[in-house]
Design a protein around this nucleic acid. Structure first.
Length: 679
RNA sequence: GGCAGGGUAGCUCAGUGGUAGAGCAGGAGAAUCAUAAUCUCUUGGUCGGGGGUUCGAAUCCCUCCCCUGCUACCA
């Protein structure tokens, strides 16, 4: 029997669980349930990741304490997880005394190994808020190309990378005020001291090859930079004992949370932490997304090594979730919260769908909603559940045969696949496991078809044969339920209830159930109605609109890339090309209706003095004539005149937007006057 | 730009040197036990392009194109 400790990455306490997160928790839960079913000693440990700036900002916005928010969010996380039948042995919090102690323990080890150094850092400080600003909370003008409103670390216009302190006219997106430069002492861990160890460990087979190649080529090919591990007050986290006023950076205490949460579990279950974290016979498996690889594969093993804890046996790394081939999108309604999903659909469906897509490779996973429905309906309802549904009631009164009938070797063949399926589960190739299981299901239904129990029941003399055929079908069903049990725990329970024999072990798939009575058959799984998927999408869309309103008041920019994708940037031009277009500020002195035109309005634009232009603009659907009258716009003044059905158009008014009601005229800021050229 | 992964049937993907596969979707038929579930047959592919190695290449090598992701002191 193996002893296995399994973790998923700790979800951040600043947001709700969504279907992207669930890839990881479902993957882990399936793997853990598989190990338990195989008879191994396995615990699944997780916790909320609670520290850092984002929580503080939220607390400030909502006028509540950080503790209040993280408590509420933890309750919500636990509710969502249990809704998806994700079963932790312990779900803790990084904001716990156990975690603080362990952070201290690892910190002393790093100090003792002489790996900690102090450096002075210059950062932007938001005076109004009284806090240092991380890069992403600053915007300003790029020091290189001077384009405005750029992020704190790199320029979206020219691609330059820089430090926020180099920005021209920086603005804090927390308060909107202008931050000042301040110096502060930070503590750094010299991870380079463990370079040789990491070279070796990252190639030792604990990581997927994609990942070890990535680390080798991108990080370990040069000296590892010192890791900035402290943040000056105010910071929501643990204060560093030997460095008052400084706090451990959230990424220091987050992975230690795996151990902190284990320690809590140990206290509750009379276990010893060292038996799990310092025992060479205990396997430690982390499941994470590819975005947080370097924390788990460089810093984390370095910390463990230094403090004398077990190194991860394996780090299982998955890719990102896409929905219908695109990133989850708020505007498309594919940014689906776990709780929203649960309002409309069965968690078993998503469990199965993800399982059928997951492999041991670091691949992104596409949730194709149409495929999702057909796959669940045809595999689970049509093939698996249907086996029981079409035979159970024929033998409800007599139960299963006392001896296993001749089934042409079907059950044996299914049992023989057991190890192959187990290997696929073990390796994380759930898609392969599901394929192998469905192959078995594909053989079971033709058996029923060929033996036509519905014919046998018409002849009382064939009662034995009828019982035999149903015994086979129900045993094949049960075999499938055992193999699917890690993915579909509820189905396994229902199968156990139907056959009055609970499924407890993987070996149940190898031994037919005989002479057993049957309960009344009850539906085990509903087909997915596409209408419910649509309803879920609709609801997700609304949710996000509300959330975005909140976020804009908080000065954080949440623009998505839909517009840019819909209309990509066209080929490059020279400055000379640009200079050929003469943009001018103009005033709409008259706006008239064009009676027979569907889209057009007729505008008289003044460029100052006597100079006016007659322009037909396709903005009727978006603007009333009254609101156009008198306003300033930007026009192309040297565009060749064009004869249109209703007259001659002598220029063009510029606007953005896809059309219809969404047309947005550009207007100059106050002070501009008609006739000015736009450069 | 660099790096990684990928490109096989309409869709999702198996297949790593020996006759191109599965599920779903499409077409035809059967059955009526079952949640309109099931069964049988069937249409469909210059395996991203080009070049090379080989008796033989989806598979190995070179090259080009396309897609996705990552690009640490951001959580």
């Amino acid at each position: 029997m193996r002893q296995i400790l399994v973790t998923s990455a700790l979800p951040y306490a600043n947001g709700h669980i969504h279907i992207g997160h669930l890839v990881e928790y479902l993957q882990t839960d399936i793997w853990v349930r598989f190990q338990k079913l195989r008879g191994h000693r396995c615990i699944y440990i997780c916790a909320d990741d609670t520290h850092g700036t984002a929580i503080s900002i939220r607390a400030h916005q909502e006028g509540r304490s950080e503790e209040e928010i993280i408590a509420e969010m933890q309750a919500a996380h636990i509710r969502d997880f249990s809704g998806f039948e994700i079963e932790f042995d312990h779900y803790g919090s990084t904001n716990s005394p156990e975690n603080r102690d362990l952070c201290g323990e690892i910190w002393s080890a790093l100090r003792k190994a002489d790996m900690v150094v102090e450096k002075e850092i210059e950062q932007l400080f938001d005076v109004e808020r009284g806090t240092f600003l991380a890069d992403r909370f600053v915007r300003g003008t790029c020091p290189k190309c001077e384009s405005g409103n750029q992020p704190g670390d790199n320029c979206g216009n020219c691609g330059a990378t820089y430090s926020p302190v180099d920005l021209i006219d920086p603005v804090s997106s927390l308060s909107g005020s202008r931050p000042e430069k301040r110096k502060a002492t930070h503590l750094f861990v010299q991870i380079e001291q463990l370079h040789d160890f990491l070279d070796e460990w990252t190639q030792s087979g604990a990581l997927p090859t994609e990942s070890s190649n990535y680390l080798k080529n991108f990080f370990l090919n040069e000296a590892l930079r010192d890791w900035d591990i402290s943040r000056p007050a105010p910071y929501f986290g643990f204060e560093i004992p030997d460095s008052p006023g400084n706090y451990w950076y959230v990424w220091f205490d987050a992975p230690i949370g795996y151990m902190g949460s284990t320690r809590k579990w140990c206290e509750l279950n009379d276990e010893n932490l060292d038996d799990w974290w310092r025992n060479p016979d205990t396997e430690v498996h982390h499941f994470i997304g590819k975005d947080i690889q370097y924390f788990h594969t460089l810093f984390w093993p370095a910390m463990l090594k230094t403090a004398g804890f077990s190194l991860p046996t394996k780090v299982h790394i998955h890719g990102f979730l896409q929905v219908d081939g695109e990133k989850m999108s708020k505007s498309r309604g594919t940014f689906i919260q776990a709780s929203t999903y649960l309002k409309h659909l069965d968690p078993a469906a998503l469990r199965y769908y993800y399982a059928s897509k997951l492999s041991s490779k670091v691949n992104d996973l596409d949730l194709n909603l149409e495929e999702f429905a057909t796959k669940v309906n045809s595999d689970l309802v049509g093939k698996v559940v249907n086996l029981a549904s079409r035979t159970a009631r024929f033998v409800k009164d007599v139960g299963l045969s006392a001896e296993y009938p001749d089934d042409g070797g079907l059950f044996e063949a299914g049992a023989a696949q057991g190890e192959k399926i187990a290997e696929a589960y073990e390796a994380g190739d759930f898609n392969k496991a599901m394929r192998l299981i469905m192959e078995l299901a594909d053989k079971a239904n033709p058996y029923v078809e060929a033996n036509a129990p519905w014919e046998l029941r018409k002849d009382p003399e064939k009662a034995d044969k009828l019982q035999a055929v149903c015994t086979v079908a129900l045993n094949l069903f049960r075999q499938l339920a055992v193999y699917l049990a890690p993915v579909l725990p509820r189905l396994a329970e229902q199968a156990g209830a139907l056959l009055k024999a609970p499924i407890l072990s993987w070996d149940d798939a190898a031994n037919p159930l005989l002479g057993s009575e049957l309960s009344k058959f009850e539906h085990m799984m509903q087909r997915i109605d596409p209408k419910k998927i649509n309803a879920m999408i609709e609801e997700s869309r609304e949710d996000q609109e509300q959330e975005q309103d909140q976020q804009t008041t908080g000065h954080s920019y949440q623009d998505d890339d839909a517009a840019l994708k819909a209309e990509p940037i066209i080929e490059e031009i020279t400055i000379d090309d640009f200079a050929k277009v003469d943009f001018r500020v103009a005033r709409i002195v008259e706006a008239k209706e064009v009676p027979e035109a569907r889209k057009l309005v007729q505008l008289t634009l003044s460029l100052g003095g006597e100079e006016t232009r007659n322009v037909f603009a396709g903005i009727k659907s978006a603007y009333d004539l009254d609101e156009l009258q008198g306003r300033l716009v930007v026009m192309v003044a040297n565009l060749a005149a064009r004869k249109m059905k209703f007259g001659i158009s002598e220029g063009m008014v510029i606007a953005s937007g896809p059309g219809g009601e969404d047309i947005f005229l550009l207007s100059p800021d106050d002070g501009a006057v008609p006739g000015q050229r736009v450069h």
